[in-house]
Amino acid sequence: MRSRLKGRGRRAWRVIAVAVLLVSMLFAPSIPGFAADPAGPGPVETDIAGGEAAAASEAPFAVQIAYDSAGISVRCTGSQISAAWVVTARHCDSASLRSVRLGTPHLGAGGTVRSVAARYASPDGDVLLLKLSVPHAGSYAGLSRTIPSPGTAARVFGWGDQSEGSGAMSSRVKAASVAVWGPGSDAFGGPSVRTQSRTGHPLSGDSGGPLIVGGKLVGVLSTSSVLPGGSPPSFTGFYNDHAAISHHLKWIADVAGVRAS
């Protein structure tokens, strides 16, 4: 397993990945674990690492986390949980994190861009709350009170890379089916919902993206297995850890005033 640190210097083991993250946060001038932001998102396709293009209605709360004020330099995914708040992964945090693009399936285009007024990192796991500078009335992800049982079918969403190490994100939000495997731990040692990929596998850029069961947000993507070159014919041997939302409910309520529905 490895942490999705938004960059290309990826590591196979979580301990190494977190160490790289911490060092990057101390010394990197921009996004931790990232090379300098490119001028644009690069070449794009519809499908990435298997999966399929998602209908906008399937996850209207999915948002793009951007490292510029224009909402173009997207490097993480998140979920809108109220008019003023977005949740993503703590390892996506950076002084370079500037804006959120909401209400569009298209990478770096359409919808509404809001600057980030404040960032709040969970003290107990890989979860980050972003307060929008101006509230945006949209579709909100309901927060789950529970961790689903092993074998439960789930869906993941994001704009991440099309294949391991490609650096080319999807032009539209994509989805993949996964199955809940059991409990695990996230990149910061917090409890996670571990899943096994089925129709596709989340990659860099999907960090912080939603894990959805029964229409509720049960986790945000923290780490995932490193794929062999390209996309394998089957993803059933590869795993993901999603920071468990149920573990952070009190903290989310205290910071953002958003409670489980």
Rank of each mutant, 00 (worst) to 15 (best):
M169S: 11
S246W: 10
C92L: 09
S122F: 06
A95C: 03
V86C: 12
N240F: 04
I16Q: 14
A19K: 05
L128Q: 07
P41V: 04
D241T: 14
H201F: 04
S204Y: 00
S139R: 12
R10T: 14
L129H: 10
A66I: 01
A54R: 09
S166Q: 06
Y239W: 12
A121Q: 12
I147W: 00
R11Q: 14
P105F: 01
G229F: 09
S171F: 00
G71S: 06
G33A: 03
F188Y: 15
D68M: 03
F188K: 07
D37K: 04
S96C: 02
G189A: 06
G151K: 07
V220A: 08
C92H: 11
L21I: 01
G205L: 02
T152E: 05
G50N: 03
V127H: 08
R194K: 14
S144T: 07
T88M: 08
V20H: 11
A49G: 05
A243T: 15
S69T: 14
A95G: 15
R14V: 15
R14G: 11
K174I: 07
A244L: 08
L249F: 07
P43G: 12
T195I: 12
G182T: 09
G257T: 11
A56M: 04
P228G: 08
W85E: 04
S207G: 10
R10F: 03
V193K: 11
A109P: 05
P135M: 00
D68K: 02
P150S: 05
A95M: 09
I16D: 14
A39H: 01
P60H: 08
G33F: 02
S177I: 02
L227C: 05
T104Y: 02
S122Y: 06
V156G: 07
W251E: 06
G214E: 00
S261T: 08
A187R: 06
A36K: 05
A62M: 10
L5G: 13
S192T: 13
H247L: 03
D124Q: 04
A137E: 12
P148H: 09
P41F: 12
V87L: 14
H136Y: 12
A176H: 00
D161N: 05
R101F: 02
K250I: 01
P183A: 13
R119G: 02
S234H: 06
A154D: 07
R75F: 05
S149L: 11
R114D: 00
L128D: 10
V127M: 05
I31T: 05
S224K: 13
R172I: 09
D93W: 10
L107Q: 08
G214L: 05
Y120K: 11
G257H: 12
A53Q: 12
K250R: 14
V173C: 04
I147Y: 01
T88H: 02
S115L: 06
A28T: 07
L132P: 04
G51V: 04
G51E: 00
A35K: 00
T152A: 15
P228R: 07
L211W: 02
R14T: 15
E58K: 11
A244Q: 15
G33E: 07
A187Q: 12
V20A: 15
S185D: 08
I72K: 14
G209D: 11
G138C: 07
R4H: 15
G182P: 09
I212S: 03
D254Y: 13
A121T: 07
S3Q: 10
L249H: 09
R8H: 03
S82H: 13
D254L: 13
A175I: 03
M1P: 08
C76I: 01
V86W: 07
A53R: 05
V18I: 12
S122E: 03
R4S: 10
